[in-house]
Design a protein around this nucleic acid. Structure first.
Length: 582
DNA sequence: CGCCTAATAT
DNA sequence: AATATTAGGC
């Protein structure tokens, strides 16, 4: 049966009219299920539909299969009983009706059976008896399949579903009268829908919705690949709102035609915050991950001149899981889309931060000012303020000036230098190597690191030890510009301790005693470190007079950093070593 | 004006 | 907790 255009237009009440194939040996059981499907009370509000589903019942597997293959009837979804007593028990159907989203049901609740069903392609396993609640959301599988199956293998029966849903959503979008939350959410969704071609390619990439989600939430997609991006904003919000908010996440993989791999832009996550909602009015949140997003949010218009013309290009780094994504979290309340969206919160994901760091390093310490960084980052929508704010924090961390809260627990030698130094950042009462260490590791600039949700700043007190160009450079004294002018002389790491996973990254300095025995400075005399101003002065002098020998405590810059600095200053020709003519 | 920093707000 | 915003100084 083929749906005509008229049929489609009539199908405004989707999922009413869902055609269900029911494979059930027991007639009585079949009748019960059928009755429930046909008389579905959908949430008691949107529609009460006398004939919610059109059910065709079969009691034999082969019959059902031939009904499908005959093409005389078109189904959207199948509910198939796993039977141990007869025939192939439903698995034959399952394997031969791949195009049809199939829900397996059984009295047998054994995990193996369930597992087998899912493994063979069932979209869901439902335990019998089938309640109305369990059946209520079966249509979601249909929509899911319709939108996520490869277009080429999309069965004819599901195409109308897709078109119908698309058309439904767009109808509402076009309705300017309704600036309701729902319509705006749908607008977002339909934009995703418009772009579904690319994402359709990964057929089973997105888990199907599952029946137990009886809340309003409709999970269109739940992309495991974007976990690292998503947990930043949605995790927080959904946590705050407990069960009152829903979270819809979508991802689409459109490549922006204009962006070449070299031009790939950074990921940025913007969160539009709720403006004036009371706890009772908590509305839903929809989070979209898109590669191209209309920035309808001019904020203060700092760098976003025309909100609606702003498109965001995104990097899509294929060799890693650093998909170029833009996430816009919308706490859509009663605020207008173009109206008063004021607060965009930039989520400084590791990727975005990496771009930031890159820009800063490219500019060099003296040139790294917000406006230039912003320029270099080429992240549209990002404002100078955003950058400035981030830069502020970046600098603070570079100088090991921890916010007071972070400093509080560093309760010893509060006024001595050591508290600001990484080596003393560990709690002093951990005086041996058994101290508990954080399970994760700071990851500044670790490109494409899959460490989802990790704070890019690292845990307080566990600063960054990596010394690659992309990472933070450890600087023991405030004001020391180790990036360009070398790093402080550190003692060599002790022999690596087997079974101590972090020893590689946390050399030697696990406690003050270790420091005292290995550090080249006078022992047990942190109080003897020069005053901050003195250090500053020394460093400044070293910077301004690079021809002079470096003071104790500083080591020369690495050749790489020198080359980088030279090239930054436009000097590309370096005379060979021997030719020292001056 | 833009930048920097610290404090404070969200 | 992470960012944004603000204020005051340069």
């Amino acid at each position: 049966m083929v749906f005509s255009a008229n049929d489609l237009q009539e199908w405004k009440d989707f999922p009413k009219g869902l055609k269900v194939l029911l494979l059930e040996r027991d007639n009585i059981s079949a009748a019960e299920i059928r009755a429930k499907l046909e008389a579905m009370d959908y949430n008691g509000l949107t529609f009460w539909i006398p004939s919610f589903c059109i059910v065709s019942t079969f009691c034999e597997e082969n019959e059902a299969l031939s009904a499908i293959s005959s093409g005389l009837e078109s189904f959207h979804i199948a509910i198939v009983e796993v039977s141990s007593s007869s025939g192939q028990g439903g698995f034959k159907f399952l394997e031969n009706a791949k195009d049809l989203p199939t829900i397996m049901t059984s009295n047998n609740h054994c995990l193996n059976t369930m597992m087998k069903c899912i493994a063979l392609g069932a979209v869901e396993f439902l335990r019998k008896p089938l309640s109305e609640d369990k059946l209520r959301n079966i249509w979601q599988h249909v929509v899911h399949k319709a939108f996520n199956a490869r277009a080429s293998i999309l069965s004819e029966s599901l195409k109308p579903v897709k078109e119908s849903v698309v058309s439904m959503l767009q109808l509402q979008t076009d309705d300017e009268q309704h600036e309701s939350r729902v319509s705006r959410d749908i607008e977002k969704v339909s934009r995703f829908v418009d772009n579904d071609h690319e994402l359709s390619s990964g057929n089973d990439k997105y888990p199907a919705p599952s029946t137990p989600q009886l809340r309003q939430g409709t999970r269109l997609l739940d992309d495991g690949d974007c976990q690292e991006q998503t947990n930043c904003s949605t995790g927080k919000e959904s946590g705050e709102h407990e069960g009152e908010s829903k979270s819809v996440e979508t991802t689409c993989g459109n490549l922006n035609a204009e962006s070449t791999p070299q031009q790939r832009k950074s990921e940025i996550t913007l969160v539009r915050e709720e403006v004036e909602s009371t706890p009772q009015q908590r509305k839903s949140e929809i989070t979209l991950v898109k590669e191209e997003v209309d920035i309808v949010d001019a904020s203060k218009g700092e760098s976003v001149a025309s909100p609606h013309t702003q498109k965001r290009k995104v990097l899509s780094n294929t060799d890693r899981n650093t998909k170029a994504l833009i996430k816009v979290g919308v706490h859509s309340d009663s605020c207008e889309i173009r109206g008063n969206q004021k607060k965009i919160k930039v989520d400084w994901t590791p990727e975005l931060h990496k771009t930031f760091v890159k820009a800063v390093e490219q500019l060099g310490i003296d040139q790294a000012i917000p406006s230039r960084i912003l320029e270099l980052m080429k992240v549209e929508g990002l404002t100078r303020h955003n950058v400035a704010s981030h830069l502020q924090k970046y600098r603070m961390h570079k100088r090991q000036i921890l916010p007071k809260e972070e400093r509080k627990w560093l309760n010893l030698r509060e006024r001595s230098y050591c508290v600001k130094r990484p080596i003393m950042a560990f709690p002093p009462y951990h005086s041996n190597h058994t101290l508990p260490l954080p399970p994760v590791y700071p990851m500044w600039g670790q490109s494409g690191s899959p460490t989802a949700g990790m704070q890019i700043w690292g845990s307080p007190g566990y600063p960054f030890w990596h010394t690659t160009a992309e990472n933070w450079h450890w600087k023991p004294f405030p004001g020391m510009h180790a990036d360009a002018w070398g790093c402080p002389v550190l003692p060599l790491p002790p022999p690596q301790t087997p079974g101590f996973p972090y020893s590689q990254n946390m050399p030697s300095l696990l406690n003050a005693d270790a420091v005292d025995h290995t550090f080249t400075m006078p022992q047990s005399s942190f109080e003897h470190y020069p005053a901050e101003e003195v250090v500053d002065k020394v460093v400044k002098e070293a910077i301004s007079k690079p021809w002079l020998p470096l003071p104790l405590g500083l080591k020369p810059p690495s050749p790489d950093s020198v080359l980088a600095e030279l090239s930054r200053q436009g000097i590309s020709n370096i005379p060979p070593k021997g030719s020292n003519s001056c």
